[in-house]
Design a protein around this nucleic acid. Structure first.
Lengths: 229, 229
DNA sequence: CGAAGTTTCTCTGTATACAAAGAGTGCTTG
DNA sequence: CAAGCACTCTTTGTATACAGAGAAACTTCG
């Protein structure tokens, strides 16, 4: 996600508050800081190697992101993810992504999606290549999301989508998709892409609706399964 | 418990950062701090009567809200509102509100909307009573929004809606609606309310779609008019 | 007279010191 | 033995001091 940090490499004079924010955010998304984990200012500041002032700024941003909540007199803690909250997140996600693909299809600039189409056609083969293939498949989905964001050209909508994806990243961690689902998802994505290329907003919208419906079902089933073990 | 929030107004011991945030936010929404206005930390801190630390926290929240942007080395400034950004905001607003009323209609708890219905039936009369009536009409719309929020029962969606409404407040300032538009809007609202009461998600969604379409047209026309003068 | 380099000055970014508020604990008393 | 109260200790909230980066202005050279 934050590969830009790697590409910036050296010489990038990053503010301490930004460093703290990215590190904490990454650790929360990774599950390294589990839901319910307590965050104490001095403790975290020392660990990350910044003073309390930039750390507080970082925590403030995490609170705005909905990743952290302040406890009354006892510091902060990482928000937890209930099954209810997953369904709720998908209600928002559906509204945003349906609108996004609708707009993308309306813009009628199919070029970047043509390329993606070719990649998604061969996606099922990718999924036979084990972990590395799955990883590349996820990268493909990221590219699709980026292409939609670029086509939409709407900072408000894209901003809301980014917020949703932040929470999705945490959910994906605790409910890994199985290969069968991923294969089905590839087909669904292909349909969405074709609809955008064809400039058919309704079709793109409905295809996205169905895709997210299936996605939610799969996530909920995976969690159900995990909790039974 | 947290009753102090309710007692707000009197000697409520509010944190300095919270005071600064509310004051700045209010002034931006009021237009007192116009788009493009520069915010200098020391200057604003002295004016509001807090030190730089809580003021910085307040500004950070305003940046997260999208009301303020950081300039390279020269402080911060209030974001400006372009005509393009209004249309973009409405693209997001439509996605969110359509989803919200759809869910509200699905929940099938018509009680709070029954009361609102009665109020909206008499809304046109309100609009004949001059400024005070118009003010009460806007309060009515707030109540409707609150009722929808409560019915939706989705923190993610409601949170996104709140963000949109923040920006809408600024837009309303620079494009006051005329009485004719308000009267038409009352009718549109009534239709939405009826659809929610009837538990008809599709009708509620389409009615909202149309309402927002008309609302955007009206806003853009009002701005066009203003810029001609 | 103009342009570029340098200097200065302002403003942000960070660290730390201080104050105040809340929670937990232990003592005292009924 | 239990309940209430006070005290202490932890942890946040705020102020301020200091350092570094960037912009504006001035000076100097072509």
């Amino acid at each position: 996600m934050y590969t830009e940090t790697a590409m910036l490499g050296l010489g990038a004079p990053l503010r301490a508050s930004e460093r703290a924010y990215r590190q904490l955010r990454g650790e929360i998304l990774n599950g390294l800081l589990a839901p319910g984990a307590a965050l104490l200012e001095v403790e975290q500041a020392e660990r990350i190697g910044v003073s309390r002032t930039p750390l507080r700024e970082a925590v403030a941003r995490l609170i705005a992101d909905g990743l952290v909540v302040g406890r009354r007199g006892r510091g902060f803690e990482v928000t937890d993810i209930s099954v209810d909250s997953i369904s709720e997140l998908y209600e928002l996600r559906q509204a945003l992504e349906v609108q996004a693909v609708r707009l993308a299809a309306t813009r009628r600039e199919p070029a970047p999606f043509q390329e993606l189409r070719d990649a998604f056609v061969t996606a099922p083969e990718l999924l036979d290549q084990g972990d590395i293939g799955v990883h590349r498949y996820y990268a493909l989905i990221d590219e699709l999301e980026d292409a939609v964001d670029a086509a939409v050209e709407n900072p408000f909508l894209v901003g809301a989508l980014r917020a949703v994806r932040t929470h999705l990243a945490r959910i994906r961690r605790l409910a890994r998709s199985n290969p069968r689902r991923l294969r089905a998802a590839a087909t669904e994505h292909l349909l969405i892409i074709d609809a955008i290329i064809a400039g058919d907003p309704s079709l793109a919208a409905h295809a996205t609706h169905i895709h997210l419906h299936q996605s939610l079902l799969s996530v909920l089933a995976a969690i159900e399964e995990d909790s039974e073990r």
